[in-house]
Design a protein around this nucleic acid. Structure first.
Lengths: 192, 192
DNA sequence: CTCGATTGTCTAGCGGTGCTAGGATCGAAT
DNA sequence: ATTCGATCCTAGCACCGCTAGACAATCGAG
């Protein structure tokens, strides 16, 4: 049994290597540069090895996305935990979100822009994704306002942040006034 | 001279054909299906002909985007012109925007998701893009609220709509409650 | 009307992509 | 020591965006 266990361990280790390398490559040069050939060369295996771990490139993107979701949930919770009062928590959340998107553009793309073959907003949605949304909901639910469903409010707030994040990064919004946009968004959307 | 004029006319006509065909193909099967080979075959010319009109695929996407910007501006102005009062205009604008995005997903992608090689939010931004933003600003400027720059407000409102549009279409937001999200967005962001 | 030059278009091909079939190699169990 | 199965790689498929160079059609000058 021990031999098989060792092999399984090594296999799992290699899978982590693939995901980590894909992520590195994507952050360095963008997802377009993450080709199966380059990725295979970096992990020092041949292309077909990738396909013994993942069905294809899409699944690799999905794996990076799940990793990113977990990290984003951590970042959001850390930021909100350090803030006093509902309003301050929402500010902290918004900053943490946009900061995460700006610092990890490739991961953000994998999560919310590219097709990683993941189910969103359904029963079979992977746990990390559900949890990332839950992390948003924990602080945003406090400021949804009377008669407004906290889930719906969270969706709207999230979508707004997503719009700012993506339009800014693609150069469609000038980056100078991001802070003012954030403040306007929080001031108007959050009910004290 | 007349001969040259006829040739120029025919050339311009063929260019329109390329853009229209690219758009059709993209709406039918998505931008991934718009390959230079397929596009060339549909217009019944060889691939290199495309490159005598456009520098490459990116420029074709850009041409579709400009067309889309013009149409979106028309749609938004038509919707807001038919509404009474600032608040009603903003509702109409938001609905028209999301409706345009849903009905013309490929054009919307060309405009706000893909790289069409266009400059946004700069001096050398193409006129149709400036005008589409202006169309938003005309109605949104009315409800920016005191002390808030209308341009900044328009950017934020636009980004929020963009977030809802893209997350909904990629299946990250369930489409059922789009109307409620829209109402929440308008109610909170717009100052009576 | 002919002939060279120019313009326009096409065929063929380059280096790249995601992905896979089939053979070689290696290690474990008999 | 030998079989046998798992593991991995080489080679190749069909497709991608893009381009060089051959070819044909048209034009202007003599």
């Amino acid at each position: 049994m021990s031999v098989q266990e060792r092999k399984q361990r090594e296999r799992a280790e290699r899978e982590r290597l693939i995901v980590a390398t894909a992520r590195e490559l994507a952050e360095e040069q963008g997802w377009d540069a993450v080709t199966t050939r380059r990725l295979a060369e970096r992990i020092e295996y041949s292309q077909p090895v990738l396909y013994s771990h993942f069905r294809g490139k899409r699944e690799i993107i999905g794996a990076v996305a799940l990793q990113g979701a977990t990290e984003m949930a951590v970042a959001v919770r850390a930021a909100t935990a350090a803030a006093d009062g509902p309003r301050a928590r929402v500010y902290a959340l918004a900053r943490a979100y946009l900061d995460f998107a700006a610092r990890n553009p490739a991961v953000y793309d994998a999560l919310f822009q590219l097709d990683g073959g993941l189910a969103y907003a359904q029963e079979d949605t992977p746990e990390p994704l559900k949890d990332a949304f839950a992390a948003l909901l924990e602080s945003l639910g406090e400021v949804a306002g009377d008669g407004v469903d906290p889930g719906l409010f969270t969706e709207v707030f999230w979508a707004s942040l997503h719009g700012v994040a993506t339009l800014t990064r693609s150069g469609r919004l000038p980056p100078e006034y991001t802070e003012q946009r954030l403040e306007l968004l929080v001031d108007r959307l959050a009910v004290v």
